[in-house]
Write a protein that binds this DNA or RNA. Structure first.
Length: 470
DNA sequence: CACCGGCACG
Protein backbone atom coordinates (compact mmCIF):
# COMPACT_ATOMS: atom_id res chain seq x y z
CA UNK A 1 0.00 0.00 0.00
CA UNK A 2 1.00 3.58 -0.39
CA UNK A 3 2.26 5.43 2.62
CA UNK A 4 -0.65 7.61 3.62
CA UNK A 5 1.30 9.74 6.03
CA UNK A 6 3.08 11.55 3.26
CA UNK A 7 2.25 15.24 3.24
CA UNK A 8 3.96 16.93 0.33
CA UNK A 9 5.01 20.54 0.72
CA UNK A 10 3.14 21.70 -2.38
CA UNK A 11 -0.18 20.61 -0.99
CA UNK A 12 0.34 22.71 2.08
CA UNK A 13 1.08 25.62 -0.21
CA UNK A 14 -2.05 25.20 -2.27
CA UNK A 15 -4.15 24.66 0.82
CA UNK A 16 -2.79 27.95 2.07
CA UNK A 17 -3.87 29.71 -1.10
CA UNK A 18 -7.30 28.15 -0.95
CA UNK A 19 -7.57 29.15 2.68
CA UNK A 20 -6.62 32.74 1.94
CA UNK A 21 -9.18 33.04 -0.78
CA UNK A 22 -11.76 31.35 1.37
CA UNK A 23 -11.39 34.18 3.84
CA UNK A 24 -12.96 36.40 1.25
CA UNK A 25 -15.76 33.89 0.88
CA UNK A 26 -14.74 33.11 -2.65
CA UNK A 27 -15.03 29.40 -3.27
CA UNK A 28 -12.02 29.36 -5.55
CA UNK A 29 -11.42 25.68 -5.82
CA UNK A 30 -14.84 24.40 -4.94
CA UNK A 31 -17.17 24.30 -7.85
CA UNK A 32 -19.93 23.12 -5.58
CA UNK A 33 -19.91 25.37 -2.55
CA UNK A 34 -22.66 23.42 -0.83
CA UNK A 35 -20.66 20.31 -0.42
CA UNK A 36 -18.76 21.01 2.76
CA UNK A 37 -21.84 22.56 4.25
CA UNK A 38 -23.79 19.48 3.56
CA UNK A 39 -21.21 17.16 5.06
CA UNK A 40 -21.36 18.89 8.40
CA UNK A 41 -25.09 19.07 8.20
CA UNK A 42 -25.35 15.34 7.77
CA UNK A 43 -23.06 14.61 10.62
CA UNK A 44 -25.05 16.72 12.97
CA UNK A 45 -28.32 15.25 11.86
CA UNK A 46 -26.96 11.77 12.44
CA UNK A 47 -25.65 12.43 15.91
CA UNK A 48 -28.69 14.32 17.12
CA UNK A 49 -31.30 12.06 18.71
CA UNK A 50 -34.11 13.42 16.61
CA UNK A 51 -33.10 14.10 13.05
CA UNK A 52 -35.50 15.31 10.40
CA UNK A 53 -39.09 14.46 10.99
CA UNK A 54 -39.96 13.73 7.44
CA UNK A 55 -43.54 12.66 7.95
CA UNK A 56 -44.45 15.92 9.60
CA UNK A 57 -42.88 17.92 6.87
CA UNK A 58 -44.79 16.31 4.10
CA UNK A 59 -46.88 19.36 3.40
CA UNK A 60 -44.02 21.78 3.69
CA UNK A 61 -42.02 22.92 0.76
CA UNK A 62 -39.41 21.93 0.05
CA UNK A 63 -39.41 18.46 1.54
CA UNK A 64 -36.09 18.28 3.41
CA UNK A 65 -34.91 15.08 1.82
CA UNK A 66 -35.53 16.31 -1.67
CA UNK A 67 -33.84 19.62 -0.96
CA UNK A 68 -30.85 17.80 0.53
CA UNK A 69 -30.73 15.32 -2.26
CA UNK A 70 -30.59 18.09 -4.81
CA UNK A 71 -27.55 19.58 -3.13
CA UNK A 72 -25.52 16.41 -2.89
CA UNK A 73 -23.38 15.67 -5.87
CA UNK A 74 -21.78 12.50 -4.61
CA UNK A 75 -24.21 9.79 -5.69
CA UNK A 76 -23.04 7.38 -3.01
CA UNK A 77 -23.78 9.94 -0.39
CA UNK A 78 -27.16 10.55 -2.02
CA UNK A 79 -27.99 6.87 -1.85
CA UNK A 80 -27.02 6.63 1.79
CA UNK A 81 -29.15 9.63 2.68
CA UNK A 82 -31.96 8.05 0.75
CA UNK A 83 -31.60 4.86 2.77
CA UNK A 84 -31.37 6.78 6.03
CA UNK A 85 -34.75 8.30 5.36
CA UNK A 86 -36.20 5.00 4.32
CA UNK A 87 -35.07 3.39 7.55
CA UNK A 88 -36.71 6.16 9.51
CA UNK A 89 -39.95 5.08 7.92
CA UNK A 90 -40.10 7.81 5.32
CA UNK A 91 -42.04 6.79 2.27
CA UNK A 92 -40.32 8.14 -0.79
CA UNK A 93 -42.34 9.71 -3.54
CA UNK A 94 -41.77 10.06 -7.22
CA UNK A 95 -39.91 13.42 -7.18
CA UNK A 96 -37.39 11.99 -4.76
CA UNK A 97 -36.90 8.85 -6.80
CA UNK A 98 -36.51 10.68 -10.05
CA UNK A 99 -34.04 13.11 -8.51
CA UNK A 100 -31.92 10.22 -7.35
CA UNK A 101 -32.19 8.44 -10.68
CA UNK A 102 -31.00 11.56 -12.51
CA UNK A 103 -28.13 11.93 -10.08
CA UNK A 104 -27.01 8.36 -10.54
CA UNK A 105 -27.33 8.54 -14.30
CA UNK A 106 -25.31 11.73 -14.42
CA UNK A 107 -22.49 10.04 -12.57
CA UNK A 108 -22.88 7.10 -14.93
CA UNK A 109 -23.70 4.71 -12.15
CA UNK A 110 -26.09 2.82 -14.38
CA UNK A 111 -26.13 -0.29 -12.23
CA UNK A 112 -27.66 1.70 -9.40
CA UNK A 113 -30.06 3.30 -11.88
CA UNK A 114 -31.31 -0.08 -13.03
CA UNK A 115 -31.79 -1.42 -9.54
CA UNK A 116 -33.68 1.70 -8.53
CA UNK A 117 -35.83 1.35 -11.63
CA UNK A 118 -36.50 -2.24 -10.69
CA UNK A 119 -37.69 -1.06 -7.30
CA UNK A 120 -39.99 1.51 -8.87
CA UNK A 121 -41.41 -1.14 -11.13
CA UNK A 122 -42.14 -3.68 -8.42
CA UNK A 123 -43.73 -1.04 -6.22
CA UNK A 124 -45.89 0.27 -9.02
CA UNK A 125 -44.58 3.78 -8.68
CA UNK A 126 -45.57 5.47 -11.83
CA UNK A 127 -42.73 7.15 -13.72
CA UNK A 128 -43.10 10.07 -16.05
CA UNK A 129 -41.91 9.86 -19.60
CA UNK A 130 -39.32 12.60 -19.05
CA UNK A 131 -37.47 10.31 -16.66
CA UNK A 132 -37.05 7.73 -19.40
CA UNK A 133 -36.12 10.36 -21.93
CA UNK A 134 -33.42 11.65 -19.62
CA UNK A 135 -32.06 8.18 -19.05
CA UNK A 136 -32.09 7.33 -22.75
CA UNK A 137 -30.04 10.45 -23.35
CA UNK A 138 -27.57 9.56 -20.63
CA UNK A 139 -27.17 6.07 -22.05
CA UNK A 140 -26.62 7.57 -25.45
CA UNK A 141 -23.93 9.92 -24.22
CA UNK A 142 -22.20 6.98 -22.55
CA UNK A 143 -22.41 5.11 -25.87
CA UNK A 144 -24.58 2.47 -24.26
CA UNK A 145 -26.93 2.27 -27.24
CA UNK A 146 -28.25 -1.20 -26.44
CA UNK A 147 -29.15 -0.18 -22.90
CA UNK A 148 -31.00 2.83 -24.27
CA UNK A 149 -32.98 0.64 -26.66
CA UNK A 150 -33.78 -1.84 -23.93
CA UNK A 151 -35.08 0.89 -21.69
CA UNK A 152 -37.16 2.30 -24.52
CA UNK A 153 -38.80 -1.08 -24.98
CA UNK A 154 -39.29 -1.57 -21.26
CA UNK A 155 -41.18 1.68 -20.82
CA UNK A 156 -44.51 -0.07 -21.31
CA UNK A 157 -43.83 -2.38 -18.38
CA UNK A 158 -43.52 0.73 -16.21
CA UNK A 159 -47.03 1.66 -17.22
CA UNK A 160 -45.59 4.55 -19.17
CA UNK A 161 -46.70 5.16 -22.72
CA UNK A 162 -44.22 6.16 -25.37
CA UNK A 163 -44.85 9.38 -27.17
CA UNK A 164 -43.00 10.79 -30.12
CA UNK A 165 -40.65 12.46 -27.67
CA UNK A 166 -39.10 9.27 -26.35
CA UNK A 167 -39.14 7.96 -29.90
CA UNK A 168 -37.10 10.99 -30.92
CA UNK A 169 -34.77 10.51 -27.99
CA UNK A 170 -33.91 6.97 -29.06
CA UNK A 171 -33.70 8.00 -32.69
CA UNK A 172 -31.17 10.63 -31.73
CA UNK A 173 -29.13 8.14 -29.72
CA UNK A 174 -28.84 6.02 -32.87
CA UNK A 175 -27.80 8.95 -35.02
CA UNK A 176 -25.29 10.36 -32.55
CA UNK A 177 -23.67 6.96 -32.18
CA UNK A 178 -23.36 6.41 -35.90
CA UNK A 179 -26.06 3.75 -36.08
CA UNK A 180 -27.95 5.07 -39.07
CA UNK A 181 -29.18 1.61 -40.04
CA UNK A 182 -30.89 1.23 -36.69
CA UNK A 183 -32.29 4.73 -37.06
CA UNK A 184 -33.80 3.89 -40.43
CA UNK A 185 -35.25 0.69 -39.07
CA UNK A 186 -36.78 2.65 -36.24
CA UNK A 187 -38.35 5.05 -38.70
CA UNK A 188 -39.90 2.21 -40.67
CA UNK A 189 -41.55 0.90 -37.53
CA UNK A 190 -42.92 4.20 -36.27
CA UNK A 191 -46.42 3.78 -37.68
CA UNK A 192 -46.56 0.29 -36.16
CA UNK A 193 -45.87 1.91 -32.81
CA UNK A 194 -48.57 4.46 -33.46
CA UNK A 195 -46.16 7.35 -33.58
CA UNK A 196 -46.48 10.33 -35.89
CA UNK A 197 -43.20 11.94 -36.79
CA UNK A 198 -42.95 15.57 -35.85
CA UNK A 199 -40.53 18.29 -36.86
CA UNK A 200 -37.96 17.19 -34.29
CA UNK A 201 -37.96 13.68 -35.77
CA UNK A 202 -37.22 15.16 -39.17
CA UNK A 203 -34.53 17.40 -37.76
CA UNK A 204 -32.76 14.36 -36.35
CA UNK A 205 -32.95 12.52 -39.67
CA UNK A 206 -31.77 15.56 -41.58
CA UNK A 207 -28.86 15.81 -39.17
CA UNK A 208 -28.07 12.17 -39.86
CA UNK A 209 -27.79 12.70 -43.60
CA UNK A 210 -25.80 15.87 -43.20
CA UNK A 211 -23.33 14.11 -40.94
CA UNK A 212 -22.87 11.57 -43.70
CA UNK A 213 -22.25 14.48 -46.04
CA UNK A 214 -25.31 13.62 -48.11
CA UNK A 215 -26.83 16.99 -48.93
CA UNK A 216 -29.22 15.50 -51.50
CA UNK A 217 -30.83 13.11 -49.05
CA UNK A 218 -31.10 15.86 -46.46
CA UNK A 219 -32.93 18.04 -48.97
CA UNK A 220 -35.15 15.12 -49.91
CA UNK A 221 -36.20 14.78 -46.29
CA UNK A 222 -36.76 18.48 -46.06
CA UNK A 223 -39.13 18.19 -49.05
CA UNK A 224 -40.86 15.21 -47.52
CA UNK A 225 -41.38 17.24 -44.42
CA UNK A 226 -43.18 19.91 -46.43
CA UNK A 227 -45.23 17.28 -48.26
CA UNK A 228 -46.39 15.78 -44.99
CA UNK A 229 -47.16 19.25 -43.73
CA UNK A 230 -44.74 18.99 -40.86
CA UNK A 231 -43.68 22.52 -40.20
CA UNK A 232 -39.90 23.12 -40.39
CA UNK A 233 -38.49 24.92 -37.38
CA UNK A 234 -35.54 27.23 -37.01
CA UNK A 235 -33.49 24.15 -36.07
CA UNK A 236 -34.34 22.54 -39.41
CA UNK A 237 -32.86 25.55 -41.14
CA UNK A 238 -29.94 25.92 -38.77
CA UNK A 239 -28.82 22.34 -39.43
CA UNK A 240 -28.62 23.07 -43.14
CA UNK A 241 -27.12 26.54 -42.70
CA UNK A 242 -24.41 25.02 -40.52
CA UNK A 243 -23.68 22.34 -43.09
CA UNK A 244 -23.28 24.82 -45.93
CA UNK A 245 -21.11 27.11 -43.84
CA UNK A 246 -18.80 24.29 -42.89
CA UNK A 247 -18.44 23.47 -46.56
CA UNK A 248 -17.44 27.07 -47.18
CA UNK A 249 -20.65 27.93 -49.03
CA UNK A 250 -21.62 30.96 -46.99
CA UNK A 251 -23.56 32.42 -49.91
CA UNK A 252 -25.74 29.32 -50.11
CA UNK A 253 -26.22 29.49 -46.38
CA UNK A 254 -27.23 33.12 -46.59
CA UNK A 255 -29.87 32.43 -49.19
CA UNK A 256 -31.26 29.61 -47.08
CA UNK A 257 -31.32 32.08 -44.22
CA UNK A 258 -33.35 34.45 -46.41
CA UNK A 259 -35.74 31.64 -47.33
CA UNK A 260 -36.31 31.00 -43.69
CA UNK A 261 -37.08 34.63 -42.94
CA UNK A 262 -39.37 34.81 -45.97
CA UNK A 263 -41.33 31.84 -44.65
CA UNK A 264 -41.89 33.75 -41.46
CA UNK A 265 -39.42 31.80 -39.31
CA UNK A 266 -37.42 34.12 -37.15
CA UNK A 267 -33.67 33.57 -37.13
CA UNK A 268 -32.16 33.13 -33.70
CA UNK A 269 -28.72 33.69 -32.21
CA UNK A 270 -27.59 30.26 -33.41
CA UNK A 271 -28.57 31.02 -37.02
CA UNK A 272 -26.39 34.10 -36.88
CA UNK A 273 -23.58 32.32 -35.06
CA UNK A 274 -23.44 29.73 -37.83
CA UNK A 275 -23.20 32.37 -40.54
CA UNK A 276 -20.57 34.23 -38.52
CA UNK A 277 -18.57 31.04 -38.17
CA UNK A 278 -18.73 30.51 -41.92
CA UNK A 279 -17.51 34.03 -42.57
CA UNK A 280 -14.65 33.66 -40.10
CA UNK A 281 -13.50 30.42 -41.67
CA UNK A 282 -13.27 32.27 -44.99
CA UNK A 283 -11.11 34.91 -43.33
CA UNK A 284 -13.92 37.47 -43.26
CA UNK A 285 -13.83 38.35 -39.59
CA UNK A 286 -14.92 41.94 -40.13
CA UNK A 287 -18.09 40.84 -41.90
CA UNK A 288 -18.79 38.35 -39.13
CA UNK A 289 -18.54 41.07 -36.55
CA UNK A 290 -20.75 43.36 -38.60
CA UNK A 291 -23.32 40.58 -38.82
CA UNK A 292 -23.36 40.42 -35.05
CA UNK A 293 -24.44 44.04 -34.90
CA UNK A 294 -26.93 43.51 -37.72
CA UNK A 295 -28.60 40.77 -35.77
CA UNK A 296 -29.34 43.11 -32.91
CA UNK A 297 -30.66 45.64 -35.36
CA UNK A 298 -32.94 42.92 -36.70
CA UNK A 299 -34.25 42.42 -33.21
CA UNK A 300 -32.47 39.16 -32.48
CA UNK A 301 -31.08 38.98 -29.00
CA UNK A 302 -27.33 38.62 -28.91
CA UNK A 303 -26.01 35.60 -27.07
CA UNK A 304 -22.64 34.65 -25.71
CA UNK A 305 -22.21 32.10 -28.50
CA UNK A 306 -21.91 34.96 -30.99
CA UNK A 307 -18.96 36.36 -29.08
CA UNK A 308 -17.62 32.84 -28.76
CA UNK A 309 -17.44 32.46 -32.52
CA UNK A 310 -15.44 35.67 -32.85
CA UNK A 311 -13.19 34.77 -29.95
CA UNK A 312 -12.42 31.34 -31.39
CA UNK A 313 -11.34 32.91 -34.64
CA UNK A 314 -9.15 35.56 -32.99
CA UNK A 315 -7.37 33.04 -30.80
CA UNK A 316 -6.91 30.64 -33.69
CA UNK A 317 -5.04 33.42 -35.45
CA UNK A 318 -3.10 34.32 -32.31
CA UNK A 319 -4.67 37.79 -32.10
CA UNK A 320 -4.50 37.95 -28.33
CA UNK A 321 -4.65 41.75 -28.30
CA UNK A 322 -7.87 41.73 -30.30
CA UNK A 323 -9.18 38.96 -28.06
CA UNK A 324 -8.60 41.13 -25.02
CA UNK A 325 -10.38 44.05 -26.65
CA UNK A 326 -13.29 41.76 -27.36
CA UNK A 327 -13.38 40.81 -23.68
CA UNK A 328 -13.46 44.48 -22.76
CA UNK A 329 -16.23 45.05 -25.26
CA UNK A 330 -18.21 42.21 -23.70
CA UNK A 331 -17.76 43.70 -20.28
CA UNK A 332 -18.95 47.10 -21.54
CA UNK A 333 -22.05 45.50 -22.95
CA UNK A 334 -22.59 43.55 -19.75
CA UNK A 335 -22.19 40.18 -21.45
CA UNK A 336 -20.55 37.91 -18.91
CA UNK A 337 -17.98 35.47 -20.29
CA UNK A 338 -19.10 31.90 -19.76
CA UNK A 339 -17.16 28.70 -19.17
CA UNK A 340 -16.63 28.20 -22.90
CA UNK A 341 -15.02 31.62 -23.34
CA UNK A 342 -12.73 31.01 -20.36
CA UNK A 343 -11.81 27.59 -21.70
CA UNK A 344 -10.84 29.11 -25.02
CA UNK A 345 -8.57 31.68 -23.38
CA UNK A 346 -7.00 29.14 -21.05
CA UNK A 347 -6.44 26.77 -23.94
CA UNK A 348 -4.73 29.53 -25.89
CA UNK A 349 -2.39 30.42 -23.03
CA UNK A 350 -1.54 26.79 -22.38
CA UNK A 351 -0.78 26.12 -26.04
CA UNK A 352 1.53 29.13 -26.03
CA UNK A 353 3.28 27.92 -22.90
CA UNK A 354 2.02 30.98 -21.00
CA UNK A 355 1.09 29.04 -17.91
CA UNK A 356 1.17 32.04 -15.59
CA UNK A 357 -1.56 33.71 -17.63
CA UNK A 358 -3.51 30.47 -17.83
CA UNK A 359 -3.38 30.04 -14.08
CA UNK A 360 -4.38 33.64 -13.47
CA UNK A 361 -7.35 33.11 -15.75
CA UNK A 362 -8.29 29.99 -13.77
CA UNK A 363 -8.39 32.08 -10.61
CA UNK A 364 -10.04 35.11 -12.21
CA UNK A 365 -12.89 33.14 -13.68
CA UNK A 366 -13.80 31.80 -10.26
CA UNK A 367 -13.72 35.25 -8.75
CA UNK A 368 -16.12 36.22 -11.52
CA UNK A 369 -18.38 33.39 -10.39
CA UNK A 370 -17.68 31.01 -13.26
CA UNK A 371 -16.48 27.62 -12.08
CA UNK A 372 -13.99 25.44 -13.95
CA UNK A 373 -15.09 22.11 -15.34
CA UNK A 374 -12.97 19.02 -15.98
CA UNK A 375 -11.83 20.34 -19.38
CA UNK A 376 -10.62 23.56 -17.80
CA UNK A 377 -8.53 21.82 -15.18
CA UNK A 378 -7.16 19.31 -17.67
CA UNK A 379 -5.86 22.03 -19.92
CA UNK A 380 -4.09 23.85 -17.09
CA UNK A 381 -2.52 20.73 -15.61
CA UNK A 382 -1.41 19.61 -19.07
CA UNK A 383 -0.07 23.09 -19.70
CA UNK A 384 2.06 22.98 -16.57
CA UNK A 385 3.30 19.51 -17.46
CA UNK A 386 4.30 20.70 -20.90
CA UNK A 387 6.42 23.49 -19.47
CA UNK A 388 7.90 21.19 -16.85
CA UNK A 389 6.25 23.04 -13.92
CA UNK A 390 5.13 19.87 -12.22
CA UNK A 391 4.69 21.31 -8.76
CA UNK A 392 2.33 23.93 -10.12
CA UNK A 393 0.57 21.20 -12.05
CA UNK A 394 0.10 19.25 -8.85
CA UNK A 395 -1.38 22.29 -7.17
CA UNK A 396 -4.03 22.54 -9.86
CA UNK A 397 -4.60 18.78 -9.88
CA UNK A 398 -5.27 18.99 -6.19
CA UNK A 399 -7.83 21.74 -6.73
CA UNK A 400 -9.33 19.66 -9.49
CA UNK A 401 -9.76 16.61 -7.28
CA UNK A 402 -11.18 18.74 -4.51
CA UNK A 403 -13.90 19.98 -6.79
CA UNK A 404 -14.66 16.40 -7.81
CA UNK A 405 -13.29 16.53 -11.30
CA UNK A 406 -11.10 13.85 -12.67
CA UNK A 407 -7.97 14.08 -14.83
CA UNK A 408 -7.12 12.03 -17.87
CA UNK A 409 -4.82 9.08 -17.44
CA UNK A 410 -2.10 10.59 -19.67
CA UNK A 411 -2.09 13.75 -17.57
CA UNK A 412 -1.60 11.80 -14.36
CA UNK A 413 1.13 9.73 -15.91
CA UNK A 414 2.97 12.77 -17.17
CA UNK A 415 2.67 14.54 -13.84
CA UNK A 416 3.93 11.58 -11.83
CA UNK A 417 6.88 11.02 -14.12
CA UNK A 418 7.75 14.71 -14.04
CA UNK A 419 7.58 14.85 -10.26
CA UNK A 420 9.75 11.76 -9.93
CA UNK A 421 12.20 13.16 -12.41
CA UNK A 422 12.53 16.26 -10.25
CA UNK A 423 13.07 14.12 -7.19
CA UNK A 424 9.66 14.98 -5.76
CA UNK A 425 8.97 11.43 -4.67
CA UNK A 426 6.53 12.38 -1.94
CA UNK A 427 4.44 14.47 -4.30
CA UNK A 428 4.37 11.63 -6.80
CA UNK A 429 3.23 9.33 -3.99
CA UNK A 430 0.48 11.76 -3.12
CA UNK A 431 -0.84 11.69 -6.68
CA UNK A 432 -0.68 7.90 -6.81
CA UNK A 433 -2.51 7.70 -3.54
CA UNK A 434 -5.26 10.05 -4.65
CA UNK A 435 -5.71 8.07 -7.84
CA UNK A 436 -5.85 4.85 -5.88
CA UNK A 437 -8.67 6.28 -3.79
CA UNK A 438 -10.69 7.18 -6.85
CA UNK A 439 -9.90 4.55 -9.39
CA UNK A 440 -12.99 2.47 -8.80
CA UNK A 441 -15.42 5.33 -8.79
CA UNK A 442 -14.06 6.77 -11.98
CA UNK A 443 -13.63 3.49 -13.80
CA UNK A 444 -9.91 3.84 -13.87
CA UNK A 445 -8.99 0.23 -14.51
CA UNK A 446 -5.37 -0.21 -15.26
CA UNK A 447 -3.65 3.00 -14.51
CA UNK A 448 -0.98 1.28 -12.46
CA UNK A 449 0.07 -0.77 -15.43
CA UNK A 450 0.25 2.25 -17.63
CA UNK A 451 2.24 4.26 -15.15
CA UNK A 452 4.59 1.39 -14.63
CA UNK A 453 5.00 0.64 -18.30
CA UNK A 454 6.14 4.15 -18.91
CA UNK A 455 8.86 3.75 -16.33
CA UNK A 456 10.61 0.73 -17.78
CA UNK A 457 13.53 2.85 -18.91
CA UNK A 458 14.44 3.89 -15.40
CA UNK A 459 14.99 0.91 -13.15
CA UNK A 460 15.15 2.77 -9.87
CA UNK A 461 11.86 4.54 -10.55
CA UNK A 462 10.24 1.33 -11.59
CA UNK A 463 11.29 -0.38 -8.41
CA UNK A 464 9.89 2.50 -6.47
CA UNK A 465 6.58 2.25 -8.24
CA UNK A 466 6.40 -1.46 -7.64
CA UNK A 467 6.77 -0.71 -3.99
CA UNK A 468 4.15 2.01 -4.08
CA UNK A 469 1.49 0.15 -5.91
CA UNK A 470 1.62 -3.20 -4.20
C1' DC B 1 -36.66 19.89 -15.18
C1' DA B 2 -34.72 17.29 -20.27
C1' DC B 3 -37.14 15.08 -28.14
C1' DC B 4 -33.46 18.24 -32.45
C1' DG B 5 -29.35 22.88 -33.94
C1' DG B 6 -24.72 26.60 -31.75
C1' DC B 7 -18.63 28.92 -29.33
C1' DA B 8 -14.21 25.28 -25.42
C1' DC B 9 -10.62 19.80 -24.84
C1' DG B 10 -9.09 15.22 -27.21
Amino acid sequence: MINSRVKPATITLSTLIIHNLAQFRIPIFQSQPYHSHHRTHRHTSKSSPEPHKPTRNLLRKPIPLLADLKQIQDPDEAISLFHDYQQMGFKHDYPTYSCLVYKLAKSRNFEAVESLLGYLQTHYIRCKETLFIGLIQHYGKAQLVDNAVELFHKMGSFNCSRSVQSFNAILNVFVDNGRSESANEMLRSCSKMGIWLNSVSFNIIIKMWLEKGDWEMARQLFDEMLEREVEPTVVTYNCQIGFLCKKGDVEGAKSLFQDMVKKGKKANAVSYALLMEGLCSLGRYKEAKKLMFDMEYQGCKLKIVNYGVLMTDLLKRGEIGEANSLLVEMKKRRVKPDIVIYNMLINYFCKEGKTTEAYRMLVDMQIAGCYPIAITYRMVVDGFCKTGEFEEGLKVLNAMLMSRHFPRMETVRCLILGLLDKGKVEDACFVLEEMEKRKKKFNFDSWEVIVKDSCTSDRSVRQLLDELVF
